[in-house]
Nucleic acid binder design. Sequence first.
RNA 1: GGCUCCAUCAUCUAAUGGUUAGGAUUUCAGAUUUUCAUUCUGGUCAUAGGGGUUCAAAUCCCCUUGGAGUCACCA
Length: 469
Amino acid sequence: MIIVKKDLLMVVTRFAPSPTGYLHIGGLRTALLSYLWARRNGGKFILRIEDTDFSRNDEAAALAIVEAFKWVGLEHDGVIEYQSSRLAIYQEYAQKLLDEGKAYKCYMPKEALDKLREEQVASKERAKYDNRYRDFTGTPPEGCEAVIRIKAPLEGSITVHDGVKGDVVFNVADILDDFIIARADGTPTYNFVVAVDDALMGVTDVIRGDDHLSNTPKQIVVYNALGFPLPKFFHVPMIHNSEGKKLSKRDGATDVMMYKTMGYTPEALLNFLVRLGWSHGDQEIFSMAEMLELFDPRDINRSASVYNTEKLDWLNSHYLKNMSNEKLCELLEFHGVMLISHDKREILLDAVKERAKTLAEMAILIGEILVAPAEFDEAVLKKGYKEESRAILEAFALALQNASELHLPSDYHHVMESVVAQLEIGFGKIGQPLRIALLGKLSGPGLDSVMAIIGVEETLARINTLIQR
RNA sequence: GGCUCCAUCAUCUAAUGGUUAGGAUUUCAGAUUUUCAUUCUGGUCAUAGGGGUUCAAAUCCCCUUGGAGUCACCA
Protein backbone atom coordinates (compact mmCIF):
# COMPACT_ATOMS: atom_id res chain seq x y z
CA MET A 1 0.00 0.00 0.00
CA ILE A 2 1.26 3.41 -0.92
CA ILE A 3 0.87 6.14 1.62
CA VAL A 4 0.83 9.59 0.14
CA LYS A 5 1.38 12.44 2.53
CA LYS A 6 -1.26 15.01 1.73
CA ASP A 7 1.10 17.95 1.75
CA LEU A 8 3.15 16.41 -0.98
CA LEU A 9 0.28 16.38 -3.42
CA MET A 10 0.19 19.05 -6.06
CA VAL A 11 -1.11 22.32 -4.68
CA VAL A 12 -3.09 24.52 -7.01
CA THR A 13 -4.21 27.97 -5.89
CA ARG A 14 -5.82 30.78 -7.77
CA PHE A 15 -6.54 34.46 -7.72
CA ALA A 16 -9.94 35.22 -9.18
CA PRO A 17 -10.73 38.91 -9.28
CA SER A 18 -13.66 40.49 -10.99
CA PRO A 19 -12.39 43.09 -13.42
CA THR A 20 -13.49 46.30 -11.82
CA GLY A 21 -10.75 48.69 -12.80
CA TYR A 22 -7.50 48.00 -11.01
CA LEU A 23 -5.81 45.60 -8.61
CA HIS A 24 -6.93 46.39 -5.10
CA ILE A 25 -4.44 46.27 -2.26
CA GLY A 26 -6.58 43.70 -0.46
CA GLY A 27 -6.68 41.64 -3.63
CA LEU A 28 -2.92 41.77 -3.85
CA ARG A 29 -2.70 40.32 -0.38
CA THR A 30 -4.83 37.28 -1.12
CA ALA A 31 -3.03 36.92 -4.44
CA LEU A 32 0.30 36.99 -2.62
CA LEU A 33 -0.76 34.39 -0.08
CA SER A 34 -2.11 32.12 -2.80
CA TYR A 35 1.05 32.60 -4.81
CA LEU A 36 3.31 31.84 -1.84
CA TRP A 37 1.49 28.69 -0.94
CA ALA A 38 1.49 27.38 -4.49
CA ARG A 39 5.16 28.16 -5.01
CA ARG A 40 6.20 26.81 -1.67
CA ASN A 41 4.69 23.50 -2.62
CA GLY A 42 5.96 23.53 -6.16
CA GLY A 43 2.40 23.84 -7.32
CA LYS A 44 0.45 26.08 -9.64
CA PHE A 45 -0.98 29.55 -9.23
CA ILE A 46 -3.81 30.37 -11.60
CA LEU A 47 -5.10 33.80 -12.58
CA ARG A 48 -8.74 33.78 -13.51
CA ILE A 49 -10.79 36.79 -14.47
CA GLU A 50 -14.36 36.58 -13.25
CA ASP A 51 -16.15 38.46 -15.97
CA THR A 52 -19.43 36.66 -16.36
CA ASP A 53 -21.41 39.81 -15.88
CA PHE A 54 -21.07 41.45 -19.28
CA SER A 55 -22.73 44.64 -18.17
CA ARG A 56 -19.82 45.26 -15.83
CA ASN A 57 -17.10 43.90 -18.02
CA ASP A 58 -13.99 45.99 -18.43
CA GLU A 59 -11.31 44.97 -20.90
CA ALA A 60 -8.63 47.22 -19.49
CA ALA A 61 -9.12 45.90 -16.00
CA ALA A 62 -7.52 42.54 -16.65
CA LEU A 63 -4.53 44.27 -18.17
CA ALA A 64 -4.27 46.49 -15.13
CA ILE A 65 -4.13 43.43 -12.91
CA VAL A 66 -1.43 41.88 -15.05
CA GLU A 67 0.54 45.11 -14.97
CA ALA A 68 0.36 45.20 -11.18
CA PHE A 69 1.36 41.56 -10.92
CA LYS A 70 4.31 42.30 -13.10
CA TRP A 71 5.37 45.23 -10.98
CA VAL A 72 5.36 43.29 -7.72
CA GLY A 73 6.81 40.21 -9.35
CA LEU A 74 3.99 37.75 -8.93
CA GLU A 75 3.74 35.30 -11.77
CA HIS A 76 0.76 33.17 -12.54
CA ASP A 77 0.99 29.86 -14.33
CA GLY A 78 -0.54 29.17 -17.69
CA VAL A 79 -2.78 31.48 -19.61
CA ILE A 80 -5.14 33.93 -17.98
CA GLU A 81 -8.51 32.26 -17.78
CA TYR A 82 -11.43 34.44 -18.74
CA GLN A 83 -14.76 33.15 -17.61
CA SER A 84 -16.42 35.02 -20.44
CA SER A 85 -14.78 32.62 -22.84
CA ARG A 86 -15.87 29.55 -20.95
CA LEU A 87 -19.60 30.00 -21.22
CA ALA A 88 -20.08 26.78 -23.17
CA ILE A 89 -18.52 24.86 -20.31
CA TYR A 90 -20.86 26.34 -17.75
CA GLN A 91 -23.79 25.67 -20.01
CA GLU A 92 -22.75 22.08 -20.33
CA TYR A 93 -22.64 21.59 -16.57
CA ALA A 94 -25.89 23.41 -16.03
CA GLN A 95 -27.46 21.11 -18.58
CA LYS A 96 -25.98 18.13 -16.82
CA LEU A 97 -27.67 19.17 -13.59
CA LEU A 98 -30.88 19.74 -15.50
CA ASP A 99 -30.69 16.29 -17.03
CA GLU A 100 -30.01 14.67 -13.70
CA GLY A 101 -32.90 16.49 -12.08
CA LYS A 102 -30.55 18.36 -9.78
CA ALA A 103 -31.52 21.68 -11.25
CA TYR A 104 -34.65 22.99 -12.92
CA LYS A 105 -36.03 25.79 -14.98
CA CYS A 106 -37.91 28.47 -13.14
CA TYR A 107 -40.35 30.63 -15.05
CA MET A 108 -41.12 33.09 -12.33
CA PRO A 109 -40.75 36.59 -13.76
CA LYS A 110 -38.26 38.89 -12.09
CA GLU A 111 -41.02 41.28 -11.11
CA ALA A 112 -42.89 38.53 -9.30
CA LEU A 113 -39.69 37.55 -7.50
CA ASP A 114 -39.12 41.12 -6.43
CA LYS A 115 -42.66 41.36 -5.18
CA LEU A 116 -42.34 38.15 -3.23
CA ARG A 117 -39.17 39.41 -1.65
CA GLU A 118 -40.83 42.67 -0.72
CA GLU A 119 -43.66 40.90 1.01
CA GLN A 120 -41.29 38.64 2.88
CA VAL A 121 -39.25 41.56 4.07
CA ALA A 122 -42.42 43.39 5.11
CA SER A 123 -43.50 40.46 7.23
CA LYS A 124 -39.98 40.15 8.62
CA GLU A 125 -39.34 36.83 7.01
CA ARG A 126 -36.12 35.88 5.36
CA ALA A 127 -36.25 36.73 1.67
CA LYS A 128 -36.09 33.52 -0.26
CA TYR A 129 -37.44 31.86 -3.35
CA ASP A 130 -40.52 29.76 -2.67
CA ASN A 131 -39.57 26.75 -4.80
CA ARG A 132 -42.72 27.11 -6.89
CA TYR A 133 -41.13 25.54 -9.98
CA ARG A 134 -39.01 22.99 -8.15
CA ASP A 135 -41.19 20.07 -9.19
CA PHE A 136 -42.99 21.71 -12.09
CA THR A 137 -43.84 19.36 -14.92
CA GLY A 138 -46.55 21.24 -16.79
CA THR A 139 -46.32 23.43 -19.86
CA PRO A 140 -44.07 26.45 -19.41
CA PRO A 141 -45.87 29.79 -19.51
CA GLU A 142 -45.69 31.72 -22.77
CA GLY A 143 -43.18 34.45 -23.51
CA CYS A 144 -41.19 33.95 -20.41
CA GLU A 145 -37.43 33.31 -20.30
CA ALA A 146 -36.50 30.77 -17.69
CA VAL A 147 -33.67 30.94 -15.20
CA ILE A 148 -32.03 27.76 -13.99
CA ARG A 149 -32.14 27.07 -10.29
CA ILE A 150 -30.21 24.41 -8.46
CA LYS A 151 -31.96 22.15 -6.01
CA ALA A 152 -30.42 23.09 -2.70
CA PRO A 153 -30.90 20.93 0.37
CA LEU A 154 -34.11 21.77 2.21
CA GLU A 155 -32.90 20.92 5.68
CA GLY A 156 -29.87 20.03 7.70
CA SER A 157 -26.64 21.94 7.73
CA ILE A 158 -23.55 22.54 5.70
CA THR A 159 -20.18 22.71 7.36
CA VAL A 160 -17.31 24.62 5.84
CA HIS A 161 -14.04 23.14 7.00
CA ASP A 162 -11.98 26.26 6.92
CA GLY A 163 -8.24 26.28 7.41
CA VAL A 164 -8.38 29.66 9.09
CA LYS A 165 -11.69 29.83 10.87
CA GLY A 166 -12.12 26.20 11.77
CA ASP A 167 -15.39 24.37 11.13
CA VAL A 168 -18.15 26.83 10.35
CA VAL A 169 -21.64 25.40 10.44
CA PHE A 170 -24.46 26.92 8.44
CA ASN A 171 -28.03 25.93 8.98
CA VAL A 172 -29.57 25.32 5.57
CA ALA A 173 -32.91 26.79 6.59
CA ASP A 174 -31.21 30.06 7.54
CA ILE A 175 -29.21 30.73 4.44
CA LEU A 176 -30.17 28.65 1.43
CA ASP A 177 -32.80 28.53 -1.22
CA ASP A 178 -32.79 27.15 -4.74
CA PHE A 179 -30.45 29.81 -5.99
CA ILE A 180 -30.05 30.77 -9.61
CA ILE A 181 -27.12 29.26 -11.51
CA ALA A 182 -28.04 30.65 -14.92
CA ARG A 183 -29.82 33.88 -15.67
CA ALA A 184 -32.70 34.32 -18.08
CA ASP A 185 -30.20 35.32 -20.77
CA GLY A 186 -28.35 32.06 -20.26
CA THR A 187 -25.27 33.49 -18.58
CA PRO A 188 -24.15 31.68 -15.44
CA THR A 189 -23.90 33.26 -12.01
CA TYR A 190 -20.95 33.64 -9.70
CA ASN A 191 -21.42 30.87 -7.15
CA PHE A 192 -21.92 28.37 -9.92
CA VAL A 193 -18.96 29.30 -12.10
CA VAL A 194 -16.58 29.62 -9.17
CA ALA A 195 -17.28 26.09 -8.08
CA VAL A 196 -17.19 24.71 -11.61
CA ASP A 197 -13.95 26.46 -12.47
CA ASP A 198 -12.17 25.72 -9.23
CA ALA A 199 -13.06 22.07 -9.66
CA LEU A 200 -12.21 21.89 -13.36
CA MET A 201 -8.96 23.75 -12.95
CA GLY A 202 -7.93 21.43 -10.18
CA VAL A 203 -7.73 24.10 -7.49
CA THR A 204 -6.85 22.37 -4.25
CA ASP A 205 -6.55 25.34 -1.93
CA VAL A 206 -8.94 28.26 -2.15
CA ILE A 207 -7.38 31.21 -0.35
CA ARG A 208 -9.62 34.26 -0.47
CA GLY A 209 -11.10 37.06 1.61
CA ASP A 210 -13.48 36.07 4.38
CA ASP A 211 -16.19 38.15 2.78
CA HIS A 212 -16.66 34.99 0.73
CA LEU A 213 -17.20 32.74 3.71
CA SER A 214 -20.96 33.06 3.53
CA ASN A 215 -20.89 32.19 -0.18
CA THR A 216 -19.07 28.98 0.47
CA PRO A 217 -22.08 26.84 1.45
CA LYS A 218 -23.67 27.67 -1.89
CA GLN A 219 -20.54 26.68 -3.71
CA ILE A 220 -20.43 23.46 -1.74
CA VAL A 221 -23.96 22.74 -2.95
CA VAL A 222 -22.66 23.03 -6.50
CA TYR A 223 -19.62 20.87 -5.82
CA ASN A 224 -21.85 18.21 -4.33
CA ALA A 225 -24.41 18.29 -7.11
CA LEU A 226 -21.68 17.89 -9.71
CA GLY A 227 -19.85 15.26 -7.70
CA PHE A 228 -16.65 17.28 -7.48
CA PRO A 229 -14.29 16.83 -4.54
CA LEU A 230 -14.10 19.83 -2.22
CA PRO A 231 -10.93 21.92 -2.07
CA LYS A 232 -9.46 23.23 1.14
CA PHE A 233 -10.76 26.64 2.07
CA PHE A 234 -8.80 29.40 3.74
CA HIS A 235 -10.83 32.52 4.39
CA VAL A 236 -8.42 35.23 5.32
CA PRO A 237 -9.67 38.15 7.39
CA MET A 238 -10.37 41.49 5.78
CA ILE A 239 -8.12 44.49 5.90
CA HIS A 240 -9.93 47.34 7.58
CA ASN A 241 -9.46 51.07 7.35
CA SER A 242 -8.83 53.21 10.40
CA GLU A 243 -12.57 53.36 11.02
CA GLY A 244 -12.63 49.59 11.26
CA LYS A 245 -14.57 49.09 8.05
CA LYS A 246 -13.73 47.10 4.98
CA LEU A 247 -11.13 48.91 2.93
CA SER A 248 -12.72 50.74 0.02
CA LYS A 249 -11.79 53.14 -2.72
CA ARG A 250 -12.51 56.09 -0.46
CA ASP A 251 -9.68 55.11 1.84
CA GLY A 252 -7.00 56.67 -0.31
CA ALA A 253 -4.51 54.44 -2.00
CA THR A 254 -6.16 51.11 -2.75
CA ASP A 255 -4.85 50.78 -6.30
CA VAL A 256 -1.64 48.80 -6.18
CA MET A 257 -0.07 50.85 -8.95
CA MET A 258 -0.56 53.97 -6.85
CA TYR A 259 2.15 52.61 -4.60
CA LYS A 260 4.54 52.65 -7.47
CA THR A 261 3.87 56.28 -8.20
CA MET A 262 4.16 57.10 -4.50
CA GLY A 263 7.60 55.57 -4.51
CA TYR A 264 7.15 52.34 -2.59
CA THR A 265 9.09 49.28 -3.58
CA PRO A 266 7.38 45.97 -4.29
CA GLU A 267 9.54 44.32 -1.64
CA ALA A 268 8.27 46.67 1.04
CA LEU A 269 4.68 46.39 -0.06
CA LEU A 270 4.68 42.60 -0.12
CA ASN A 271 6.53 42.44 3.18
CA PHE A 272 3.93 44.75 4.66
CA LEU A 273 1.03 42.75 3.31
CA VAL A 274 2.33 39.37 4.36
CA ARG A 275 2.60 40.61 7.95
CA LEU A 276 -1.06 41.57 8.03
CA GLY A 277 -2.71 38.61 9.65
CA TRP A 278 0.37 36.45 9.61
CA SER A 279 3.63 36.40 11.48
CA HIS A 280 6.62 34.26 12.20
CA GLY A 281 7.85 34.87 15.73
CA ASP A 282 9.35 38.32 16.09
CA GLN A 283 10.51 38.58 12.51
CA GLU A 284 9.50 41.73 10.66
CA ILE A 285 11.62 41.68 7.55
CA PHE A 286 10.83 38.98 5.05
CA SER A 287 12.48 38.60 1.71
CA MET A 288 10.51 36.81 -0.97
CA ALA A 289 12.71 33.79 -0.38
CA GLU A 290 11.87 33.81 3.31
CA MET A 291 8.16 34.23 2.66
CA LEU A 292 8.30 31.28 0.33
CA GLU A 293 10.08 29.24 2.92
CA LEU A 294 7.90 30.15 5.88
CA PHE A 295 4.40 31.02 4.78
CA ASP A 296 1.65 28.58 5.61
CA PRO A 297 -2.03 29.53 5.32
CA ARG A 298 -2.78 27.48 8.41
CA ASP A 299 -0.92 30.13 10.41
CA ILE A 300 -3.14 32.97 9.27
CA ASN A 301 -4.86 34.91 12.05
CA ARG A 302 -8.59 34.83 12.51
CA SER A 303 -9.13 38.50 13.14
CA ALA A 304 -9.21 41.45 10.79
CA SER A 305 -6.35 43.91 10.78
CA VAL A 306 -6.26 47.62 10.31
CA TYR A 307 -4.45 49.05 7.36
CA ASN A 308 -1.88 51.46 8.69
CA THR A 309 0.80 52.87 6.46
CA GLU A 310 3.25 53.83 9.20
CA LYS A 311 4.78 50.41 9.14
CA LEU A 312 4.79 50.38 5.37
CA ASP A 313 6.80 53.61 5.45
CA TRP A 314 9.25 52.10 7.86
CA LEU A 315 9.62 48.98 5.75
CA ASN A 316 10.03 51.00 2.61
CA SER A 317 12.80 53.13 4.07
CA HIS A 318 14.42 49.97 5.33
CA TYR A 319 14.50 48.51 1.85
CA LEU A 320 15.64 51.79 0.35
CA LYS A 321 18.52 52.04 2.80
CA ASN A 322 19.69 48.57 1.97
CA MET A 323 19.35 48.90 -1.75
CA SER A 324 22.34 49.12 -4.08
CA ASN A 325 22.89 52.47 -5.72
CA GLU A 326 22.66 50.84 -9.07
CA LYS A 327 19.20 49.54 -8.37
CA LEU A 328 18.19 52.82 -6.79
CA CYS A 329 19.35 54.67 -9.86
CA GLU A 330 17.24 52.42 -12.01
CA LEU A 331 14.10 52.86 -9.92
CA LEU A 332 14.56 56.60 -9.68
CA GLU A 333 14.14 56.94 -13.41
CA PHE A 334 10.44 56.31 -12.99
CA HIS A 335 10.36 59.35 -10.74
CA GLY A 336 12.01 61.54 -13.32
CA VAL A 337 15.55 61.39 -12.01
CA MET A 338 18.25 60.40 -14.51
CA LEU A 339 21.55 59.71 -12.86
CA ILE A 340 23.10 57.08 -15.08
CA SER A 341 25.77 59.37 -16.45
CA HIS A 342 26.20 61.50 -13.36
CA ASP A 343 29.81 61.16 -12.21
CA LYS A 344 28.99 61.81 -8.55
CA ARG A 345 26.14 59.35 -8.51
CA GLU A 346 27.51 57.24 -5.67
CA ILE A 347 28.04 60.16 -3.32
CA LEU A 348 24.67 61.58 -4.21
CA LEU A 349 22.73 58.40 -3.57
CA ASP A 350 24.63 57.63 -0.39
CA ALA A 351 23.80 61.09 0.87
CA VAL A 352 20.14 60.70 0.13
CA LYS A 353 19.15 57.06 0.59
CA GLU A 354 18.88 57.15 4.37
CA ARG A 355 16.79 60.27 4.45
CA ALA A 356 13.80 59.31 2.35
CA LYS A 357 10.84 57.11 3.10
CA THR A 358 9.91 56.77 -0.55
CA LEU A 359 11.54 57.01 -3.94
CA ALA A 360 9.38 60.01 -4.66
CA GLU A 361 10.78 61.77 -1.61
CA MET A 362 14.24 60.78 -2.68
CA ALA A 363 13.68 62.28 -6.10
CA ILE A 364 12.73 65.57 -4.48
CA LEU A 365 15.79 65.53 -2.26
CA ILE A 366 18.00 64.90 -5.26
CA GLY A 367 16.38 67.77 -7.10
CA GLU A 368 17.10 70.07 -4.20
CA ILE A 369 20.76 69.19 -4.36
CA LEU A 370 21.21 69.27 -8.10
CA VAL A 371 19.27 72.46 -8.74
CA ALA A 372 20.29 75.74 -7.14
CA PRO A 373 17.64 77.28 -4.91
CA ALA A 374 15.48 79.62 -6.95
CA GLU A 375 14.78 81.96 -4.09
CA PHE A 376 15.41 82.37 -0.41
CA ASP A 377 12.66 82.30 2.13
CA GLU A 378 12.73 85.29 4.47
CA ALA A 379 11.93 83.25 7.54
CA VAL A 380 14.76 80.87 6.74
CA LEU A 381 17.19 83.74 6.22
CA LYS A 382 16.16 85.32 9.47
CA LYS A 383 16.89 82.14 11.32
CA GLY A 384 20.11 81.07 9.67
CA TYR A 385 21.70 84.00 7.85
CA LYS A 386 22.97 86.35 10.54
CA GLU A 387 24.97 89.55 10.32
CA GLU A 388 28.34 87.86 10.50
CA SER A 389 27.32 85.13 8.08
CA ARG A 390 28.31 86.97 4.95
CA ALA A 391 31.90 87.44 6.11
CA ILE A 392 32.10 83.80 7.09
CA LEU A 393 30.83 82.65 3.72
CA GLU A 394 33.30 84.95 1.97
CA ALA A 395 36.14 83.48 3.98
CA PHE A 396 34.95 80.01 3.15
CA ALA A 397 34.65 80.83 -0.53
CA LEU A 398 38.18 82.13 -0.52
CA ALA A 399 39.45 79.01 1.17
CA LEU A 400 37.69 76.91 -1.45
CA GLN A 401 39.28 78.86 -4.26
CA ASN A 402 42.71 78.38 -2.74
CA ALA A 403 42.24 74.71 -2.15
CA SER A 404 43.09 72.15 -4.79
CA GLU A 405 42.03 68.63 -5.59
CA LEU A 406 38.57 68.86 -4.14
CA HIS A 407 36.72 65.67 -4.95
CA LEU A 408 35.48 63.74 -1.97
CA PRO A 409 33.18 64.95 0.78
CA SER A 410 36.11 64.64 3.15
CA ASP A 411 38.10 67.10 1.02
CA TYR A 412 35.41 69.70 1.49
CA HIS A 413 35.11 68.80 5.11
CA HIS A 414 38.80 69.66 5.64
CA VAL A 415 38.26 73.07 4.12
CA MET A 416 35.32 73.70 6.43
CA GLU A 417 37.41 72.61 9.38
CA SER A 418 40.24 74.90 8.51
CA VAL A 419 37.94 77.90 8.12
CA VAL A 420 36.21 77.12 11.39
CA ALA A 421 39.56 76.86 13.13
CA GLN A 422 40.92 79.99 11.52
CA LEU A 423 37.90 82.11 12.45
CA GLU A 424 37.58 80.42 15.81
CA ILE A 425 33.89 79.76 15.40
CA GLY A 426 31.64 76.74 15.84
CA PHE A 427 30.58 74.57 12.94
CA GLY A 428 27.06 75.88 13.21
CA LYS A 429 28.16 79.41 12.35
CA ILE A 430 29.20 78.31 8.91
CA GLY A 431 26.88 75.38 8.50
CA GLN A 432 23.60 77.24 8.60
CA PRO A 433 24.35 80.01 6.11
CA LEU A 434 26.16 77.60 3.85
CA ARG A 435 23.21 75.25 3.90
CA ILE A 436 20.93 78.10 2.96
CA ALA A 437 23.23 79.05 0.11
CA LEU A 438 23.42 75.51 -1.21
CA LEU A 439 19.93 74.18 -0.58
CA GLY A 440 17.79 77.13 0.32
CA LYS A 441 16.71 75.58 3.61
CA LEU A 442 17.91 74.74 7.06
CA SER A 443 17.95 70.98 6.87
CA GLY A 444 19.28 68.42 4.48
CA PRO A 445 22.15 66.11 3.69
CA GLY A 446 25.71 66.70 4.88
CA LEU A 447 27.15 69.85 3.34
CA ASP A 448 30.45 68.21 2.48
CA SER A 449 28.55 65.68 0.41
CA VAL A 450 26.44 68.31 -1.28
CA MET A 451 29.51 70.26 -2.29
CA ALA A 452 31.31 67.19 -3.51
CA ILE A 453 28.30 66.40 -5.67
CA ILE A 454 27.86 69.80 -7.26
CA GLY A 455 31.57 70.71 -7.38
CA VAL A 456 33.57 73.79 -6.49
CA GLU A 457 32.29 76.08 -9.19
CA GLU A 458 28.66 75.50 -8.48
CA THR A 459 29.32 75.79 -4.76
CA LEU A 460 30.98 79.14 -5.24
CA ALA A 461 28.20 80.26 -7.54
CA ARG A 462 25.52 79.40 -5.01
CA ILE A 463 27.41 81.12 -2.20
CA ASN A 464 27.77 84.14 -4.42
CA THR A 465 24.08 84.20 -5.24
CA LEU A 466 23.22 84.35 -1.57
CA ILE A 467 25.82 86.97 -0.77
CA GLN A 468 24.88 89.19 -3.71
CA ARG A 469 21.20 88.82 -3.05
C1' G B 1 -33.12 42.39 11.14
C1' G B 2 -31.38 36.85 9.95
C1' C B 3 -26.90 34.19 9.45
C1' U B 4 -21.57 33.98 10.16
C1' C B 5 -17.00 35.62 11.91
C1' C B 6 -13.94 38.38 15.29
C1' A B 7 -11.97 40.63 20.22
C1' U B 8 -3.85 41.25 23.62
C1' C B 9 -0.54 48.24 23.81
C1' A B 10 -2.80 53.77 19.25
C1' U B 11 -1.35 50.04 15.04
C1' C B 12 0.78 45.03 13.20
C1' U B 13 1.49 40.96 16.21
C1' A B 14 4.17 36.88 20.15
C1' A B 15 3.01 33.96 24.31
C1' U B 16 2.73 23.66 24.76
C1' G B 17 -3.13 26.19 30.76
C1' G B 18 2.24 28.23 34.66
C1' U B 19 6.39 34.60 31.26
C1' U B 20 7.83 40.65 35.51
C1' A B 21 2.27 39.47 28.99
C1' G B 22 7.51 39.61 24.43
C1' G B 23 8.79 42.04 19.62
C1' A B 24 7.91 45.74 15.79
C1' U B 25 5.71 50.46 14.13
C1' U B 26 4.07 55.08 16.12
C1' U B 27 5.01 58.39 20.10
C1' C B 28 8.09 60.54 24.11
C1' A B 29 12.96 61.39 26.36
C1' G B 30 18.42 61.07 25.94
C1' A B 31 23.00 60.24 22.95
C1' U B 32 25.26 60.94 18.08
C1' U B 33 25.00 64.72 13.83
C1' U B 34 27.16 71.81 11.60
C1' U B 35 21.12 71.00 10.50
C1' C B 36 17.43 67.49 9.28
C1' A B 37 17.16 62.43 8.63
C1' U B 38 19.57 57.93 9.92
C1' U B 39 21.62 55.15 13.95
C1' C B 40 21.95 53.89 19.19
C1' U B 41 19.94 53.83 24.38
C1' G B 42 15.81 54.19 27.42
C1' G B 43 10.53 55.20 28.68
C1' U B 44 4.99 55.36 28.20
C1' C B 45 1.09 52.12 26.40
C1' A B 46 -2.69 46.03 26.13
C1' U B 47 -5.30 40.65 27.59
C1' A B 48 -13.36 44.52 26.34
C1' G B 49 -16.79 43.28 30.81
C1' G B 50 -19.02 39.42 33.85
C1' G B 51 -19.47 34.51 35.29
C1' G B 52 -17.59 29.59 35.46
C1' U B 53 -13.77 25.04 34.87
C1' U B 54 -8.75 24.57 37.17
C1' C B 55 -3.86 24.36 42.21
C1' A B 56 -3.18 27.81 38.03
C1' A B 57 -6.81 31.25 32.47
C1' A B 58 -4.77 36.16 27.65
C1' U B 59 -5.26 30.93 26.58
C1' C B 60 -10.93 26.26 27.77
C1' C B 61 -16.67 26.98 28.42
C1' C B 62 -21.04 30.34 28.93
C1' C B 63 -23.25 35.18 28.93
C1' U B 64 -22.94 40.41 27.91
C1' U B 65 -20.94 44.27 25.14
C1' G B 66 -18.56 45.97 20.98
C1' G B 67 -16.92 45.48 15.95
C1' A B 68 -16.95 43.29 11.07
C1' G B 69 -18.77 40.50 6.85
C1' U B 70 -22.84 38.75 4.20
C1' C B 71 -27.84 38.20 2.87
C1' A B 72 -29.24 39.82 -5.95
C1' C B 73 -31.15 37.12 -12.58
C1' C B 74 -23.18 41.60 -8.67
C1' A B 75 -18.76 39.31 -8.10
